[in-house]
């Protein structure tokens, strides 16, 4: 699939993401985004402001644990929350940084470093390198959306000029 995907955001239930909310937005109740005419879908997980700059946060997306990272330029990237070296779900709690121009996260467990954009292991700290799965992420206004299998990032409807 090529070209921009139109992503109308529909938030069912009584948790409108546009409304100001105190504390974290709890959107645990099947907050889904319908993608017109395609199987891949985008899941709204939180608002940008729920993510601290240069710090990770975990999210549940279709029963899978995803680690979200908001960079200093407000780009949001998503990788696997499970640290393959320890088996613990902790990657979102690592320290965010850079190697050259590459945004990175270091495992809080045994300090392996990954490229946040590709999930590639950049420093295996003496072990066999193991990469992280990645998810596409886009923001629609203030809403952060994580793409399911096959989802391709593109401007969301609300963000179009």
């Amino acid at each position: 699939m090529t070209g921009p995907v139109q992503v109308p955001v529909q938030v069912p239930g009584d948790v409108p993401v546009e409304a100001p909310v105190d504390g974290p937005v709890d959107v645990r109740v099947d907050v889904r985004v319908e993608v017109r005419g395609a199987a891949p879908r985008w899941t709204a997980v939180c608002r940008l402001d729920d993510l601290a700059p240069e710090r990770g946060a975990a999210a549940l997306v279709d029963g899978e644990q995803v680690a979200l990272f908001r960079l200093v330029d407000d780009t949001v990237l998503a990788v696997e929350q499970r640290d393959p070296f320890s088996g613990a779900h902790v990657v979102s709690r690592g320290i965010v940084g850079t190697r050259g121009d590459t945004p990175t996260v270091a495992s809080p467990m045994y300090k392996q470093v990954w490229d946040l954009r590709t999930g590639r292991c950049l420093d295996a700290v003496g072990r066999e390198p193991q990469d992280l799965r990645t998810w596409p992420v886009q923001t629609d206004g203030d809403v952060v959306l994580v793409g399911g299998p096959g989802a391709v990032p593109g401007p969301a409807e609300g963000a179009a000029p």
């Binding site: 645990r28 939180c46 979200l68 613990a88």
Partner: peptide
């Protein structure tokens, strides 16, 4: 806020 287990399910325990 940092103590949420998941940003979209702050009180759901880590299922692993």
């Amino acid at each position: 806020r940092r103590f949420a287990s998941f940003v979209n399910a702050p009180t759901t325990p880590d299922p692993s």
